[in-house]
Design a protein around this nucleic acid. Structure first.
Length: 258
DNA sequence: ATGGTAGAGTGTCTA
């Protein structure tokens, strides 16, 4: 089984690339972030003709997440237990959707960006990660926490840390929040197959960052121990970031033994 | 410190 995660930066504007990606790599389950569509604008008919079902949630003008699957889409849930204020207008920027696909529990996550250290959105980001970690501790079975974490866990995951002074994604509290998941037994199942430095999943649209490989590694697949033991390979589809009409993130793909 | 690009939708806001 092949699963993937991709921040598509608008599902509607990227639908052609999404369909081509699914077919090119024979993907069974794709978690997407930043759908930027309202619920009534989904599902997209092209996907169903390819055999995929779509579950979307938390859709608004800027964010939103979805899971696209051709191996089942069961027990769909939005949010996670214990998160304060879930669903209220003030927190609509942050989303999580879970679905069981082919026996694997897949969580499509869009961690809040945080905007600036000290900003209320930054505080909320840390609270959101803490709430997710707490909920994740209760998860059992083959589970994958996938998506745009908006955290670059180490300096190797940033093209130039000096440029990120006073910026989000690299602050110690954010990195500690991410590390907490690893401490709890979640594995970054992609890194062993894509060693760095210089390996990224996101390149800003500005200043030809992709062409110069000045990016960040902020999209992750964290596997539960039982899922992690099934991983046979992983890659970042860097080529998908090239050319006109690309998302600013590349897809991350993971293969699982049956 | 600012700006650069892209996507949502018409005013800017967000990333």
């Amino acid at each position: 089984m092949r699963i993937a995660t991709w921040n598509v930066n608008s599902l509607r504007s990227r639908i052609g690339r999404v369909e081509a990606f699914l077919q090119r790599h024979d993907v069974d389950v794709l978690a997407v972030q930043e759908t930027k569509a309202r619920e009534e604008q989904l599902p997209l008919m092209g996907l169903s003709s390819l055999g995929y079902d779509v579950a979307a949630a938390g859709v608004d003008q800027w964010n939103g997440v979805a899971v696209i699957s051709r191996v089942g889409l069961e027990d769909v849930a939005v949010g996670f237990p214990g998160q304060p204020g879930w669903g209220e207008p003030a927190v609509t920027e942050a989303r999580a959707l879970a679905a069981t696909c082919g026996g694997v529990r897949v969580w499509s996550l869009y961690v809040p960006n945080g905007r600036k250290p000290g900003d209320p959105h930054y505080t909320y980001k840390l609270q959101w990660l803490a709430a997710l970690r707490e909920a994740a501790r209760a998860m059992t079975g083959d589970t994958a926490l996938v998506g745009d974490w908006n955290v670059a866990p180490t300096d190797d995951d940033v093209f130039d840390v000096a440029q990120f002074k006073n910026s989000t994604h690299v602050t110690p509290p954010e990195r500690e929040a991410f590390q907490g998941f690893l401490d709890d037994g979640w594995d970054d199942v992609v890194r062993p197959h894509t060693p760095g430095p210089g390996v990224y999943t996101y390149w800003d649209y500005f200043r030809q960052r992709f062409e110069r490989n000045r990016g960040l590694r902020i999209d992750f697949v964290l596997g539960s121990p039982s899922l992690s033991s099934r991983v046979t390979g992983a890659f970042i589809d860097v080529d998908e970031r090239a050319g006109k009409g690309a998302s600013d993130h590349a897809p991350v793909v993971v293969d699982l033994a049956d």
